[in-house]
Each structure stands twice: as C-alpha cells, then as structure tokens.
Lab assay of single mutants.
Amino acid sequence: RDEDEKEKIKEALKRGNEDKAKEIAKRANVSPEEYERLRKEAE
C-alpha cells in the first residue's frame, strides 16, 4: 500500500505534476526526506 503511494508520487513527478505529487505525499504521510528521494528517482 505504501509502495503504491510512492509509485503514484513518482508517476506524478515524471509528468511534472508536482502539486499532485505533494498532495499524495501529504496524504500518505511521506516524509520530506523520502519525498526528495522520490523526486530524484523520478528525474
């Protein structure tokens, strides 16, 4: 379940949809550090 959320965040970031990614991260309680890591992976 947690991994699904992280995949959704990465997908949103790949599409350049940072607002959606942040919204998912907030809902999934993803830490800022984890969010940054996902953002780097998505580049």
Rank of each mutant, 00 (worst) to 15 (best):
E41P: 02
E41G: 04
N29A: 08
D4H: 11
E34W: 02
A42M: 09
K10E: 02
D4K: 11
E18M: 10
K10R: 08
A42G: 04
R37D: 05
I24W: 03
E43D: 09
E7T: 13
R37M: 08
A12G: 01
A42Y: 06
P32Y: 10
I24L: 11
K20W: 13
V30W: 04
L38A: 02
K22C: 05
D19K: 13
E41S: 06
G16I: 01
R27F: 05
E41T: 05
S31C: 04
E23R: 08
E11N: 12
E3V: 10
E36R: 04
N17G: 03
E11W: 05
P32G: 08
V30C: 04
K6M: 14
K6L: 15
R15Q: 15
A25D: 01
R15M: 14
E18W: 09
D19R: 12
D19M: 13
E7V: 12
K6V: 10
S31M: 06
K14W: 05
Y35Q: 01
A42P: 02
K26I: 12
E23N: 06
K14D: 02
E7S: 12
A42V: 15
V30R: 01
D19H: 11
D2Y: 15
I9H: 01
R15N: 14
E34T: 03
D19L: 12
Y35K: 00
G16V: 01
G16N: 05
R1Q: 14
E11F: 04
E7L: 14
E3M: 11
G16K: 04
N29E: 07
K40A: 14
K8A: 15
L38S: 00
A28M: 09
D2T: 13
R27T: 09
E34G: 02
I9G: 01
K22H: 08
Y35T: 00
K6A: 09
R37P: 00
A12N: 06
I9D: 01
K10H: 02
E11Y: 04
P32E: 11
N29H: 10
A42R: 03
K26G: 07
G16D: 03
P32I: 10
A21V: 01
L13S: 00
V30P: 00
K26S: 10
S31T: 13
G16Y: 02
A21G: 03
K10M: 06
S31V: 04
Y35S: 00
L38Y: 05
A42T: 07
K40N: 10
N29F: 07
K40E: 12
E18R: 06
L13Y: 02
Y35P: 00
K22Q: 11
K40Q: 15
A25Q: 06
D4S: 13
Y35G: 00
A21P: 01
I9M: 03
R39P: 00
E23W: 04
E36Q: 06
E33F: 05
E33Y: 05
E36D: 10
K22P: 01
D19G: 10
K10V: 07
K40P: 01
R27E: 10
E23V: 06
K6E: 07
E11Q: 11
K8F: 06
N17H: 13
L38H: 00
A12F: 11
L13F: 11
R27Q: 11
E41Y: 04
E3L: 12
P32D: 13
N29L: 07
S31N: 08
E3S: 12
A12E: 11
K22V: 08
K14L: 10
E3N: 13
L38T: 01
D2E: 14
R15P: 01
E34V: 05
K6S: 09
R39K: 13
K20V: 15
A28K: 05
G16T: 01
R39M: 06
L38G: 00
V30N: 00
R27I: 09
E41L: 09
K8V: 05
I24R: 02
P32F: 10
R1N: 14
R1L: 14
A21E: 01
D19Q: 14
E34K: 00
R1E: 13
L38C: 03
E5A: 15
E36A: 07
D19S: 12
N17L: 14
K6C: 05
I24C: 04
A21L: 01
E33A: 10
R39C: 03
K6W: 15
E5S: 13
R15A: 15
Y35N: 00
E34N: 02
A42E: 03
E41A: 09
D4L: 13
A28T: 07
K8D: 07
L13A: 01
K8S: 11
A25W: 00
P32A: 13
N17V: 03
Y35L: 07
A21W: 01
A25M: 05
E7H: 12
V30M: 12
K22G: 04
L38P: 00
R39N: 03
E41W: 08
N29I: 03
E34H: 02
E18L: 11
A12S: 06
E36N: 06
V30K: 02
D19V: 13
N29M: 09
R37A: 09
I9C: 03
L38R: 01
V30A: 02
R15E: 15
R39L: 06
R37T: 07
E7D: 10
E36M: 07
P32S: 10
K20D: 11
E33I: 06
R27M: 09
A21I: 01
G16M: 03
G16Q: 04
K8L: 13
P32K: 10
K14I: 10
K20P: 02
K8P: 02
R27H: 09
S31Y: 03
N29K: 10
R39F: 05
K40Y: 12
E11P: 02
I24E: 03
E5Y: 15
D4E: 12
E5F: 15
E34D: 08
R37Q: 09
I9F: 02
E41Q: 11
G16H: 06
E7I: 13
E36V: 03
D2Q: 14
D19P: 09
A28C: 11
A25F: 02
Y35R: 00
A28Q: 07
K26D: 10
L13V: 04
E43K: 09
K14F: 05
A28W: 07
R1A: 15
R27A: 13
K22A: 09
